[in-house]
């Protein structure tokens, strides 16, 4: 399990990184934390000719609140997000999900941008980005761009990100008011990739009815999916068990899970409904606790 030969360049800035990517004409791969890329290279499932190291580029790091948006630099370590009070207060869904990403040692190296760009359909951070409708800011040698996370994923580990582009920042919407979030996943062991995962966030009105909601499902389709129709069922209504079950079924109906040694497609679909219901219940409970 030794990687194939590659060349290595450390980018000192975003401009430097995109210039290196452009020059490599599709043969380069970015490496930040490398927690997914390095094992793929060790197994020779990935064999880039050039690794462009963007670790430590200062402009890619940091967490800041600007208005109703939480801006997270793509190079920000998952461990930093986990420990961030700002994230914990403002984007509870992310705070709930982040502890499920691998183990502490993985989060010490792994970055939010790396996980989102890699696009594993069972990974937590792409799911959160899709669920919340995050905006991904990108950079190429031609200039800056942005794309909604909901339009980003094409299939397993396949995204619309051009080969010469770099995600620089993830902008997450901050919901104010009586907001609650829930995140549940089923993994055989804690820290494993999820067989299925569910994310939910709700806002309640003064009378406890759902003002708005988002539901996302991971691990049960080629990409993480936002279940807009299922979420819409909740709007204007009280989040009781029957309604939650209906929304969970609607979300599960959207899945296209695969069968493998860890479980059949049917199992994953049922699991999705269970996890969505749990996430919604948690979200409702949390929101109700907000005065």
């Amino acid at each position: 399990m030794k990687a194939a030969e590659f060349a290595y360049a450390r980018a000192l800035s975003v401009a430097d990184a995109v210039a290196l990517l452009a020059a490599a004409a599709g043969e380069a791969k970015l490496i930040a934390g490398g927690q997914t890329l390095v094992p793929l290279m060790a197994m020779r499932l990935a064999r880039p000719a050039l690794l462009v190291d963007i670790d430590g580029i200062a402009e890619l790091n940091g967490i800041a609140m600007v208005g109703d948006t939480l801006r997270i630099g793509a190079g920000t370590r998952q461990a930093e997000i986990e420990r961030s009070g700002l994230v914990g207060r403002e984007v509870r869904l992310l705070a709930l999900a982040i502890g499920h990403v691998g183990h502490g040692q993985i989060r010490n190296r792994g970055t939010i941008g790396g996980s989102i760009a890699h696009g594993d359909p069972a990974a937590e951070l792409p799911l959160v980005a899709v669920t919340l409708g995050a905006t991904l800011l990108t950079e190429t040698s031609a200039g800056a761009g942005e794309i909604s996370a909901r339009d980003f994923y094409l299939g397993p580990m396949t995204t619309t990100l051009p080969a010469d582009a770099l995600i620089t920042r993830i902008d997450l919407p901050i919901w104010r008011g009586r907001v609650g979030a829930g995140f549940h996943e089923m993994s055989p062991r804690r820290g494993d990739f999820a067989l299925a995962a569910a994310a939910a966030q709700v806002e309640l009105d003064g009378r406890g009815r759902c003002r708005r909601a988002v539901i996302g499902v991971g691990g049960a389709a080629p990409t993480p999916i936002a279940c807009a129709d299922a979420a819409r069922l909740l709007e204007g209504r009280t989040l009781d068990d029957t309604l939650i079950a209906a929304a969970a079924s609607a979300a599960a109906a959207l899945t296209e899970p695969a069968s493998d040694s860890h479980g059949s497609a049917e199992y994953r679909r049922r699991l999705t409904a269970v996890l969505v219901a749990r996430a919604l219940k948690d979200a409702a409970t949390m929101a109700r606790a907000v005065p």
């Binding site: 197994m43 055989p188 062991r189 804690r190 494993d192 990739f193 493998d260 040694s261």
Partner: peptide, 28 residues
């Protein structure tokens, strides 16, 4: 509960790494 060297219908081992062959951690 966790560990199995499962083979698929093509005779391929599907638990060929520590990602799929599940050794219990301290949590389990």
């Amino acid at each position: 509960l966790y560990e199995e060297f499962a083979y698929d219908e093509n005779g391929q081992l599907v638990a060929g790494s520590f990602v799929d062959y599940l050794l219990p951690s301290v949590h389990e």
